[in-house]
Design a protein around this nucleic acid. Structure first.
Lengths: 135, 135
DNA sequence: TTAACTGTATTAATATATTTAGTACAGTTA
DNA sequence: TAACTGTACTAAATATATTAATACAGTTAA
């Protein structure tokens, strides 16, 4: 499904969270799409199932996925969840990164170009009303 | 000088790096301004000098400060260093954060407003030609 | 020159965080 | 029923961060 850097200073479960977020954000994974089970993904990546579970738990806490016992873990309809806390976080982080970029010599024009690029690369995923029952 | 969260999941030395970067980026610390010595800052913050040293080493590697044995550590003229690698990093990080923000519902207008806000908050520091000798 | 400062390096011990391993339980699906 | 799913828990192993103590070399000012 994707590659990990087992030698990275960044914990594996964090890499997993980041990578899965990317896939969800860029609509590579559709709404309600089933993620690999913790055991299957663990085997594919040759890491412990507990590590996958930790990543999935974090993604669920942040509202990106939801899990149903016995069924699996699925991509969430993000708008259904309260993500105001996440928005605040990402905005604060963005301000720091923007300040750093400006300091390093990146121009405002370049920053605006980045926004345009990202916005165009994010293709909208179609809506789909058939969702797994959540209990 | 500033406060740290010793209970945070984020390592102390990383908090130090981030905080000092902020101060440098926002011109709270002027070019060639002397930072507290590793021992003094360690005492002020009640942490080990080695942890300060680790943060300073990282800041030096990223080009934000330079250190002279026997003299001290000083804020760098960032433009004198090759920061293209740092620029590439921060741009990549920004793209991820922008994608996440858009996904969470932040509008492009809000993103552009963020840039304006940051740009206005960063007051330009005056140039100063008297620098410590680097050897 | 001396005393007190500076950065830097190294080793060892400790503390904390991450990952693995193994097991168990409950719900789902065919 | 058999094989899947998420979830929880404890224990052990591993990796990382932090502290502690010491040492060495360059700088500064008395």
């Amino acid at each position: 499904m994707f590659e990990l850097d087992l030698r990275s200073r960044k914990p594996i479960y964090e890499q997993l969270v980041d990578r899965l977020k990317q896939l969800i954000i860029n609509n590579v994974l559709d709404k309600d799409e089933k993620l690999p089970s913790v055991r299957v993904l663990a085997q594919q990546l040759s890491i412990n199932p507990n590590t996958i579970q930790k990543a999935y738990r974090e993604l669920e806490a942040q509202g990106y996925i939801y899990s149903v016992k016995g069924k699996g873990s699925f991509v969430n309809h993000i708008m259904m969840t309260d993500n105001s806390a996440e928005i605040k976080k990402v905005k604060e982080q963005l301000k720091k990164q923007i300040a750093e970029a400006l300091f390093l010599g990146v121009t405002i024009e370049e920053l605006e170009k980045l926004i345009t690029e990202v916005e165009q690369s994010v293709t909208r995923g179609d809506q789909d009303d058939s969702s797994p029952e959540r209990h």
